[in-house]
Design a protein around this nucleic acid. Sequence first.
DNA 1: CAGTTACGGAACGATCTGGTATCGTAACCC
DNA 2: GGGTTACGATACCAGATCGTTCCGTAACTG
Lengths: 215, 215
Amino acid sequence: MSISEGDGRAVEGDRHGGRHLDASRDAVLCDAALRLLAQIGYDRLTVDAIATSAGAGKATIYRRWSGKAELVVDALLRHKPHPVAPDTGSLRGDLRELALRASAPTGQPLDSSVMVGLASALPRDPDLRAAFEERLVAPHRRVLAAVFERAVARGEIAPVANLDLVVSLIPALVLYRLLVQTQEVDPTFVESIIEGVILPLVLAGPVSLQSTPTY
Amino acid sequence: MSISEGDGRAVEGDRHGGRHLDASRDAVLCDAALRLLAQIGYDRLTVDAIATSAGAGKATIYRRWSGKAELVVDALLRHKPHPVAPDTGSLRGDLRELALRASAPTGQPLDSSVMVGLASALPRDPDLRAAFEERLVAPHRRVLAAVFERAVARGEIAPVANLDLVVSLIPALVLYRLLVQTQEVDPTFVESIIEGVILPLVLAGPVSLQSTPTY
DNA sequence: CAGTTACGGAACGATCTGGTATCGTAACCC
DNA sequence: GGGTTACGATACCAGATCGTTCCGTAACTG
């Protein structure tokens, strides 16, 4: 659980004497960074605000990271991904369970809010994008894929032809709702995705003749 | 076509003598704003950059708008929405036609790029969000809805139960691909949306559909 | 014609941000 | 204990950006 240093962070020479870096400050600073990131977005995020919000001095930040970009990347990498896939016994139940997670009350640095806050910065920072992909996107997709594959194993549905695309549906529609429509992601909304899109799609078996000729 | 002033723009006292505001400068400035917006995003967009890019002085901008926010909102409102819905005779053809538009070569201030650039700024600026909704989102949704309704009128598909959600699918998946996956929206991708999600969803009856006509 | 205003361009002061340095205190190694 | 380093806090500087102002020139009104 306790991660010391050397995670691709700022240069840290081998010190031998003197007071140690307080590892608990790392977590507090990263939490503050993610919280502010979700609130005001990456571009308006300032190092001063992170330090103040964490009750720390700026020097404490620059002792660990070389700047805002590295701090945010590290905060993403430390971010605990979603728990393992639910296993309620049915595809509908598993998807509902995931829906409840996605619409969690806004207390934690919710993945969706972090996604929105990072949105405009992703295209121009490869490191940021990589950390974003590794800690937010990929875990979501893995969990969703596992849920579908387990439904296939149960014989509940036929193997999903284009799993990558189907797995994109929930996060894409959630992001669209948050970003473009600026509406709440309540259980009712996610329910409508499950019942109106996902389940009809994967339950209705492979569709007509011309749908899949070129694969 | 020629819009003079009074569009909720900056305060413009009734002047009587002297040189007139050059209306052609308005369009040039708005085009430059949208182009830069698509390139670097709203937060990093600067008034100086817009002026320089348009070959104008900053004074020319502040004579028309009170700042960056008002300029971008006005640029969005002047932005010509997509042409009318295509009418190829079949749902698949219409959707393909829309796909070609969405994946247009990156020359113009493409709607998708503007969407990405505006993303992080939308939650905190209601005026920006309203203009965004009115000129980018709503037209897209109207065109898509029209395409589906015409397919229903032709008897090609059954009435779509949750049209609002189905109409969100294409823009949501396109946004997700651009923003989260940072991948290109090429015709192949949009084709996979049409063939793998949209058509199966609206064509598939609960079960067997061997009698699907060949379009 | 004289007066007024827009235009591109440049300069200006004010504000904000990033990153460094400093200070007094506290924690750690030898 | 002596030396070293982290910590929170503050001050400081360099650069970017904003919005304004001024300039010489051009265009329009009366």
